[in-house]
């Protein structure tokens, strides 16, 4: 019993079940899947699809954020801003100098690679400040947090853009003949790649070692500076992928001030919900990813319930506080020791 409580996956899965239970009681139709038609192809629709669709960006970002948190013991708060920048660059490359291009000026893959490069550079900048100059991650990333959106709007001259292109829309909507939204497929691919990296390379082990004790890991031949730097680079790639999805979803119309606003906070929350210590060290990637989908589940639940708009952030805050408090290691230790105590007298009775 106590083993279940101690398992890191317990909290996010319990939260997920709680939300499922709540919706089952209030309105079982919440889970109904139906068939829709998009562009002549039949697709699946329903709240569950909406959750896995719209939670994709967050899940992808949670992957990178987990590594950064584990390695550096801090968080990157510039994610939303750099995502805007990456999206803006992708759009710029695709549109050339027109505001509503009829044909794309570059292939999407080139645009994505350029966006990726920019996001990696941002990651490298953050990583360098954190790894080489030993600046607190939150302070180091504050620079791009403040400047990123301005740079993004400068890239596109603050213009109002729309890219109506079938192929560009694939990334945020549906691929032909496939009933599942593309963002979810991309998220699954990212998750698989990360899982393989963690399984077949020493990335996970080294990152945790650095996060737990930098000095002893250095004595054991691990380069902590490099590991921190690498974690920020990986987050950069995640940011670029998420930026592409979101830019495609919005057909290139990026409102520079509001694009992916506060998504960094949700990503950090996903890591926390997954029960990962925000001070670095051990991490559980699956828990973070489930955490990300829990957040999206909560958002869609609140939308479906039609909560009073002014109260929406408050509802979210209350649920989040409860989840985070329960997932705190001290609370979980208390719970597991409590269950032990409860079980001991039982045995005596028997």
């Amino acid at each position: 019993m106590s083993k279940i409580f101690k398992n890191q996956l317990f909290i996010p899965i319990a939260a997920l079940l709680l939300l499922v239970l709540f919706n089952l009681i209030v309105d079982p139709a919440f889970f109904a899947l139906s068939k829709g038609v998009y562009d002549g192809d039949s697709i699946l629709t329903g709240n569950l699809i909406s959750i896995i669709d719209n939670g994709s960006e967050l899940a992808i970002l949670a992957i990178g954020m987990t590594l950064v948190t584990a390695a550096s013991g801090g968080q990157d708060i510039s994610v939303g801003a750099t995502m805007t920048l990456a999206g803006s660059v992708i759009v710029k490359v695709l549109r050339g100098s027109e505001t509503s291009p009829v044909t794309l000026h570059q292939s999407i893959i080139v645009a994505f690679l350029v966006g990726c490069l920019v996001a990696i550079l941002c990651g490298a900048f953050n990583g360098a400040l954190v790894a080489f100059f030993k600046i607190q991650p939150m302070v180091a990333t504050l620079i791009l947090f403040t400047a990123g959106r301005s740079i993004a709007s400068w890239v596109n001259n603050n213009q109002n853009i729309i890219i109506k292109d079938e192929k560009f829309k694939y990334f945020g909507y549906y691929l032909p003949k496939i009933p599942i939204p593309t963002p979810f497929i991309i998220a699954i691919i990212c998750i698989i790649i990360m899982a393989l990296l963690l399984k077949f390379t020493t990335l996970g082990l080294y990152t945790q070692a650095v996060g737990i004790n930098e000095n002893s890991s250095r004595l054991n031949g691990i380069n902590p500076t490099l590991m921190k730097f690498v974690s920020f680079i990986i987050l950069g790639v995640c940011v670029a992928v998420a930026g592409l999805i979101k830019a495609s979803r919005q057909e290139g119309t990026i409102s520079y001030g509001g694009f992916a606003k506060y998504i960094e906070m949700d990503a950090i929350l996903a890591v926390a919900l997954g029960g990962n210590p925000l001070g670095g060290g051990k991490f559980n990637m699956a828990a973070s990813i489930i955490g990300a989908y829990v957040i999206q589940f909560l958002t869609i639940t609140l939308y479906a319930r039609g909560v009073n708009p002014e109260a929406l952030p408050a509802y979210k805050a209350v649920v989040v506080i409860i989840l985070v408090v329960i997932s705190a290691p001290t609370v979980r230790d208390k719970i597991s020791s409590l269950t032990k105590k409860l079980r001991v007298p039982k045995k005596e009775v028997c």
Binding site: Q250, S255, P309, E310
Partner: peptide, 8 residues
């Protein structure tokens, strides 16, 4: 509901 001016 409020969407904070945001498309998504």
């Amino acid at each position: 509901q409020t969407a904070d001016w945001d498309e998504g």
